[in-house]
Simulated scan of single mutants.
Amino acid sequence: MSYVTHYPDVVPRLTDGTVVLRAMTEADLPASVEQSTDPETVLWTTVPSPYSLDDAREYLDVIRRGWEEGGDAVFALELANPADGGDPVPFAGLLDVRRRGTASWEVGFATHPAARGRGVMTAALRLAAAWAFEEGAPSLYWYAGVGNWASWRVAWRVGMTWHGTLPQRIAGRDGRSEDAWCASLLPDQPMEPRTPWVVAPVLEGEQVRLRPWRDDDGEGLEPRDDPAHWIPSTGPSMTSADFPAWLERRRSAVASGAVVDWCIADRESDRALGDLDVFVRNGTLDSSDVAEIGYQLTPSARGRGVATEAARLAVSYAVRRVDDGGLGIRRLVAETAADNEASNTVLRRAGFVVWGREHSVDRLPDGSYADALYWELVDES
């Protein structure tokens, strides 16, 4: 006699004591509509818009067939015992594991607004990945639309390896295909971050506040007016016109573990005045005790000590021991154009000294070449 297991009994119940992965039920439908009509969900998924209870009920049938026929395995999430002391969330999102036999499996997820920022999806993805590997998944791949930083941070937290951007890889709205970020996890890999991701701490000075960049910071940025060889770049610049693309490049570098990046903001108005970063050119910040500092100001912010104060704040944080909340950098270096006296003054006032000069580095518009200076600051503590 053979036994056929039907939905919801076919769905395993997975839990770490805080988050539960379980079968979706009729009781979850109103909350799933809330999730599916939330702007973030609409932005990053192909869920129908508008989305109604009837749509949710039809999707529940799709989920049921997937489980019973060995197709996509979609779990409902529940925050049952919050570690943060907040309220439980009976329906915290959906996570689907797309089973592909012996080929690579895929994972996708969406979090209910009430559960965002509470570590729910990270815990859920670890549970789902362990289950998928027990079921025979040779690998687990994640794809997300370019710019979906919340989704990438979840994938990063569970130890997925970043593979880059794939052109026209995922379905978008209105039948369009879109570029996608890609990462993967193998069965024998630890489910912990593979690289650091340093969120810039807020540092307060008398004139400035160093803080993470925000999406709306580009509104007050001005066209550049400094010589091209002072800040050589082949990509988007720190201006209002280029800001979305410029900010995405900065955030990508931060996500790679190579950079901690600050917006230099006016302390009173919080308006963006410039950019400052501490970075390594190879590897990650936690793999070296030597790092480089770079900075730039929007034209109207110059000449009043803004960059000097910002540099001093960043240096203090960079050389602070890791145990004390800093980066633990022993030696900071910088490179400037020799004729950029304003930038050279900032470094001197921040404690840097020149250790070298390279001749004829940058070609100028008139055909001549400019020299470069190399600076260092060594923490002796």
Results as ranks from 00 to 15, higher is better:
Pro12Glu: 02
Ser49Asp: 14
Trp230Asp: 00
Val259Arg: 13
Glu192Met: 12
Thr195Asn: 10
Ala27Gly: 08
Asn340Arg: 13
Arg153Ile: 01
Pro82Ala: 04
Glu106Trp: 01
Trp152Asn: 05
Ser237Asp: 13
Ala342Ile: 02
Ser269Gln: 01
His112Gly: 03
Thr25Asp: 09
Gly257Cys: 12
Ser368His: 04
Gly86Leu: 01
Ala114Met: 03
Arg320Ser: 07
Val315Ser: 09
Ala265Glu: 10
Ala307Ile: 12
Arg22Cys: 05
Val278Cys: 14
Thr122Trp: 00
Gly325Asp: 11
Glu206Val: 12
Arg209Lys: 11
Glu335Lys: 15
Val378Pro: 03
Pro48Asp: 08
Thr161Ser: 11
Ala228Met: 06
Gly257Pro: 13
Ala150Glu: 12
Ala307Val: 10
Ser151Arg: 09
Arg153Glu: 05
Arg281His: 13
Arg312Ala: 04
Arg118Tyr: 03
Met121Val: 13
Thr46Arg: 13
Arg348Pro: 07
Asp16Pro: 01
Ala115Ile: 04
Asp179Phe: 01
Ser2Gly: 11
Gly218Phe: 09
Val346Gln: 02
Trp67Glu: 10
Ala311Phe: 07
Ala114Thr: 05
Leu60Asp: 14
Leu377Thr: 05
Trp262Thr: 14
Asp277Asn: 15
Ala83Arg: 08
Ala301Lys: 08
Ser269Met: 04
Arg271Tyr: 01
Arg173Gln: 06
Trp152Ile: 14
Leu273Pro: 08
Val146Lys: 10
Asp379Gly: 07
Leu43Ile: 07
Asn282Ser: 15
Arg349Ala: 10
Gln189Ile: 05
Arg312Tyr: 01
Tyr295Asp: 05
Ala137Leu: 07
Trp262Gln: 11
Gly17His: 06
Arg214Lys: 07
Gly119Gln: 05
Leu347Asn: 03
Arg363Ala: 12
Val146Met: 06
Pro196Ile: 12
Thr336Ser: 15
Glu178Ser: 04
Pro236Arg: 10
Pro82Asn: 06
Ala31Arg: 12
Ala337Val: 08
Ala92Arg: 03
Ala73Tyr: 11
His163Trp: 12
Asn282Glu: 15
Ser256Phe: 03
Asp28Ser: 09
Thr345Asn: 14
Ala241Met: 08
Ala110Tyr: 00
Ala80Tyr: 04
Tyr51Arg: 13
Leu140Met: 07
Ser252Met: 09
Ser233Ile: 06
Glu204Thr: 15
Gly175Pro: 11
Val97Phe: 04
Asp225Val: 15
Gln296Ser: 15
Asp339Pro: 10
His163Glu: 14
Ala183Cys: 12
Val319Glu: 05
Pro232Leu: 09
Ile293Met: 14
Ile170Tyr: 02
Gly303Gln: 08
Pro212Tyr: 02
Arg281Thr: 14
Ser104Leu: 12
Ser343Lys: 04
Leu166Gln: 09
Pro187Glu: 04
Ser300Pro: 10
Asp339Ala: 08
Val333Met: 13
Leu247Tyr: 08
Gln168Gly: 05
Arg331Tyr: 00
Trp156His: 15
Ser316Tyr: 00
Thr41Met: 05
Gly147Trp: 03
Pro167Asn: 01
Trp67His: 06
Gly70Val: 12
Trp67Pro: 10
